[in-house]
Amino acid sequence: MAERKGVQGCGIEGCIKALVIVDRARISSVARALRNIPASAIDVIELNDPQYVAVKKLVYVHGDRAVAFAVANALVSYRLSLPGERYWLEFAEWASRIQTPSTGKDLVDAMKLFLAESRGNRMVTVQKARRLERASRILESILQEPGRYRDLSVLVRELADALGARPEEKTIVFAAKMAYYAYRALGIDVVGKDDIPIPLDRRMALLTSASGIIGAPPDKVFTRYRLDAVRAWHEVSRESGIPALHLDAVVWLPAHGIERHLRRGLEYARDEFARKLVGYSKGIVDWSTARQIASQVIYRDPYA
Rank of each mutant, 00 (worst) to 15 (best):
residue 80 L to A: 12
residue 28 S to P: 00
residue 251 V to L: 10
residue 244 A to C: 13
residue 180 Y to L: 11
residue 79 R to H: 00
residue 170 K to P: 00
residue 46 E to M: 06
residue 191 V to H: 03
residue 287 W to V: 11
residue 21 I to L: 09
residue 248 D to N: 11
residue 187 G to D: 02
residue 144 Q to Y: 03
residue 270 R to P: 05
residue 190 V to R: 03
residue 287 W to I: 13
residue 195 D to L: 07
residue 162 A to N: 03
residue 220 K to L: 14
residue 122 R to N: 04
residue 39 A to R: 15
residue 86 R to I: 12
residue 274 A to I: 10
residue 93 E to N: 15
residue 256 H to R: 15
residue 146 P to C: 08
residue 213 I to W: 03
residue 215 G to W: 01
residue 75 L to E: 00
residue 132 L to F: 05
residue 19 L to N: 06
residue 106 D to E: 15
residue 54 A to P: 01
residue 197 P to L: 07
residue 185 A to G: 12
residue 247 L to Q: 07
residue 276 K to E: 08
residue 304 A to L: 09
residue 110 A to F: 00
residue 209 S to V: 02
residue 183 Y to H: 10
residue 125 T to E: 05
residue 109 D to Y: 02
residue 101 P to T: 01
residue 264 R to I: 01
residue 25 A to H: 07
residue 200 L to D: 02
residue 57 K to A: 12
residue 248 D to E: 15
residue 131 R to G: 10
residue 115 L to F: 08
residue 279 G to P: 01
residue 220 K to G: 01
residue 296 Q to C: 10
residue 100 T to N: 01
residue 72 A to T: 02
residue 219 D to T: 03
residue 246 H to C: 04
residue 279 G to W: 11
residue 203 R to P: 01
residue 299 Y to G: 12
residue 36 N to F: 08
residue 265 G to Y: 09
residue 195 D to H: 07
residue 28 S to C: 02
residue 159 L to T: 12
residue 28 S to V: 07
residue 77 S to C: 09
residue 125 T to P: 01
residue 160 A to H: 05
residue 290 A to I: 03
residue 155 L to P: 09
residue 41 A to R: 08
residue 50 P to S: 09
residue 182 A to T: 14
residue 282 K to Q: 15
residue 208 T to F: 00
residue 86 R to T: 14
residue 164 G to Q: 00
residue 200 L to K: 00
residue 237 S to V: 08
residue 299 Y to C: 11
residue 96 S to E: 09
residue 86 R to W: 06
residue 141 S to G: 13
residue 72 A to R: 05
residue 120 G to P: 04
residue 20 V to D: 08
residue 241 G to A: 13
residue 66 A to L: 08
residue 128 K to P: 00
residue 272 E to H: 03
residue 207 L to I: 13
residue 165 A to P: 04
residue 56 K to T: 03
residue 29 S to H: 12
residue 163 L to P: 08
residue 196 I to V: 14
residue 30 V to R: 01
residue 293 I to W: 04
residue 4 R to F: 13
residue 18 A to I: 00
residue 303 Y to R: 06
residue 73 N to M: 14
residue 113 L to W: 03
residue 115 L to K: 08
residue 98 I to N: 07
residue 297 V to A: 05
residue 213 I to V: 13
residue 246 H to S: 14
residue 135 A to N: 07
residue 281 S to A: 12
residue 135 A to M: 07
residue 3 E to C: 08
residue 31 A to W: 04
